[in-house]
Design a protein around this nucleic acid. Structure first.
Lengths: 217, 217
DNA sequence: TCGATGTATTTTGTATACATGCGCAAGGTA
DNA sequence: TACCTTGCGCATGTATACAAAATACATCGA
């Protein structure tokens, strides 16, 4: 097999989905605002067909709402939405933690510990954005270790929907310190393969996430 | 407010989504088989545009898989898929049970108990289909009592994807009796508002569902 | 001036036409 | 005969045209 020189011939649909998803997460398309179909298809330089298909996909993901004959809007999360999502996410990550302790290989756990070290390095340097990205990766990777694809998918979905709010909400330094402490506990439990303790830690972590985030909605 | 005389002007998209979803759940469209776009749009008497949008929605729901330039197929669940879905569903319903005990009103609990009575009546009469439908409703209603919309959505999604397999897998009489016993325990715990016990019961119930179902995949 | 009603304009929904890429089979070559 | 090549047909992907609905706006009357 030669080096991978394949042209990633992704369909326009897929490209539009990830592009618009990013626009929503980055806040370029503001929550609650109408999605101007004509404007966006012009900027993205695609026709209405793949664009509208993409909207359907994003609607199913929960990022946009299509109101029949009235256009689509970027879904705006209420406090109740965010609370319920964090409640479910906490419970899912508890399961992920427990399963990871039971099913992950030693190298996989070590890899996650290494990732954690890199996060700590970012924290010491106060490199917010790299930390944030590693953090996202930490949680997805932990879900992977559960060896449960449904769990991974659902966690990824909620993560994506909350991404923006969590980013906004984690600005305060003391919040950051708290999150770091949570992670220390999680990694310790993971090293010991103590599923119960890891599950509790993940659940608690997300419980505190609500406290950190709730005022920025 | 007068009686609701609004004309339900559902878009073709929505109609196609629910129609095709039913075709998949009912097994008319067989798992793993290619979806013949031309044939279906003819039978449904719609054009390709709303049909293809509907496919995107169903793909996001996990019922079909669109392979770029290669057509769509009805997603075929592997044993691993079903196991992971039941594992997550069990965990979600555990949460639903715990939250329901904490948050539901007395009348709501009573309504669920009544529903349970009707299920028992069906069981005594060996009315399989009505029982099955009431059972679906029982689980959705219990999720409602959690007052957590995200939980409801995710539970509904997994339910829909598993619907067909669960129906096939619940044919044996002894399986049915076991499921009924599980429900008795669940309702007892719910009456007592014993969240922990209800959570365990729901989780155990779905654990046994795997046993009932696993050979029919 | 305010409101109601009818009309114009914009926007969305659906159908269809056109483009592209995949799979398969016919034909050629070793 | 087995395997590779090549070209054609057809399914899929995308663009555009047309239809219907909703919104904005203007005109008329009280």
């Amino acid at each position: 097999m030669t080096a991978n020189i394949a042209i990633t011939n992704r369909s326009l649909h897929d490209q539009v989905v990830s592009r618009v998803r990013d626009l929503i997460i980055e806040g370029v398309l503001e929550p609650g605002s109408r999605i101007d179909e004509a404007r966006l298809i012009e900027e993205l330089e695609v026709s209405r067909t793949p664009f509208r298909e993409a909207l359907r996909t994003l609607a199913a993901e929960g990022l946009v709402i299509v109101r029949p004959s009235k256009g689509s809007i970027v879904r705006k999360l209420t406090r109740e939405d965010v609370f319920s999502m964090l409640e479910v996410l906490a419970h899912l990550e508890r399961l992920a933690g427990e399963l990871a302790c039971a099913r992950a290989g030693d190298e996989q756990i070590q890899a996650l510990v290494d990732l954690h070290q890199r996060m700590m390095e970012c924290y010491r340097q106060r490199d917010r954005l790299p930390y944030y990205k590693l953090n996202q990766e930490f949680h997805s990777r932990l879900a992977e270790l559960s060896k449960n694809t449904t769990l991974q998918d659902m966690q990824a979905n909620i993560q994506a929907r909350l991404k923006r709010i969590r980013y906004i909400g984690n600005q305060k330094p003391e919040s950051w310190a708290g999150a770091v402490a949570d992670h220390e506990e999680m990694v310790a439990a993971l090293k010991d393969r103590d599923g119960k303790r890891l599950g509790d830690a993940m659940s608690d972590h997300l419980g505190r996430t609500w406290e950190r985030v709730k005022d920025s909605i």
